[in-house]
Amino acid sequence: MINLKNVTFKWHKSDSSPTLNIKGLVIEKGEHIFLHGPSGSGKSTLLAILAGINTATSGDVTLLNQTLNKLNNTKRDIFRADHIGIIFQNFNLLPYLSPLENVVLGCQFSKSRQQKALSQSATLNTEATQLLNALGLTEQNHNKNVAELSIGQQQRVAAARAFIGNPEIIIADEPTSALDTQNRESFINLLFKQANNSNSTLVFVSHDETLKPLFDRFIDLISLQEQV
């Protein structure tokens, strides 16, 4: 599913040591991975490489049998749009779109996700509505101004946007750091439920180790990079 082999990454060619150095990382389909790393451990870099926004300086990054570093920029952008859903830390909705429109946006840059969404519902809007309902955002909030939603509600919308059109991989970058403990757990459980529903692989990144017990598998980024 996700396979990293001898991956290094340098921001600049002149950098003496790489920002990221991973000998091997394999993630199976449908796994819920907790990727832990304190700030500065190369978390954001790894995510950017997984999402195909940056390419590895050396080594191979293979997702769904596609070697990302062998694709050109446009193909990588299309690959991301088709197969990866991303949830950010906070405030990750477009302020000028309604919650519903924000969700639909998730499949508007990808034909294949649009088709998948339409194979499940008659219109993109119905699919988005169903997802929002499933993630616990009541319908009266679907067309509100985004700014009127609480952070927790905004994260649900962001999650729905990541899940629409059933992408194979969901990357969540510190999605719970703005939530309190109680909301954190319920949000993560919603993510699990939705990931199971759509059979997606979930890569959850955080510096907060207290979340560790909730996940199938725990990977520590620092020890991962120390492997020889």
Partner: peptide, 15 residues
Amino acid sequence: RELAILRSVGARPWQ
């Protein structure tokens, strides 16, 4: 931020 969000849902730089 808006640009980053659009990038994450698959918008290409030229878009």
